[in-house]
Amino acid sequence: MNQKIRARKVRLVGEGVEPQIIDTRDALAKAQEMEMDLVEISPNADPPVAKIMDYKKFVYEQKKREKAMKANASKVVIKEIRFGPNTDDHDYEFKRKHAEKFLKEGAKLKAYVFFKGRSIIYKDQGEILLLRLAQDLEELGKVEQMPKMEGKRMNMFIAPKKK
Score class of each variant (00 low, 15 high):
Pro85Thr: 06
Lys104Tyr: 06
Met69Cys: 09
Asp136Leu: 05
Lys51Glu: 11
Lys70Arg: 15
Ser74Glu: 12
Ala45Phe: 12
Met53His: 01
Val39Leu: 06
Val77Lys: 11
Tyr92Ile: 04
Ser74Ile: 11
Glu66Gly: 07
Gly106His: 09
Asp54Trp: 03
Ala73Gln: 13
Ile81Phe: 04
Asn86Met: 12
Arg82Tyr: 07
Asp88Ala: 02
Asp54Leu: 03
Ala50Ser: 06
Tyr122Ile: 04
Lys70Val: 08
Lys101Asn: 05
Ile52Phe: 08
Phe94Ala: 14
Lys97Leu: 12
Leu133Ser: 08
Leu131Ala: 11
Met53Leu: 10
Leu103Asp: 01
Lys70Gly: 14
Gly126Asn: 09
Arg96Gly: 04
Phe114His: 02
Leu38Val: 00
Asp89Leu: 05
Lys123Met: 02
Pro43Asn: 02
Gln135Ile: 07
Arg82Glu: 07
Val49His: 12
Ala111Phe: 00
Gln135Val: 12
Glu40Arg: 00
Gln135Asp: 13
Lys63Gly: 11
Lys110Ser: 12
Lys123Ile: 05
Met69Pro: 10
Phe114Met: 02
Phe102Ile: 13
Arg96Asn: 05
Lys101Trp: 08
Glu80Asn: 08
Gly126Glu: 05
Lys104Ile: 07
Lys63Val: 14
Glu138Asn: 15
His98Ala: 07
Ile78Lys: 15
Gln135Phe: 05
Leu130Glu: 05
Ala134Lys: 15
Asp46Gln: 00
Leu38Glu: 07
Gly84Arg: 12
Phe58Gly: 10
Glu61Phe: 12
Tyr112Asn: 11
Glu100Ile: 00
Ala68Ser: 14
Lys101Pro: 01
Lys75Thr: 07
Phe58Pro: 06
Asp89Arg: 01
Gly84Pro: 03
Ile41Gln: 06
Gln135Leu: 09
Asn44Arg: 04
Ile52Leu: 01
Arg118Ile: 04
Lys75Tyr: 08
Ala73Glu: 12
Glu40Trp: 00
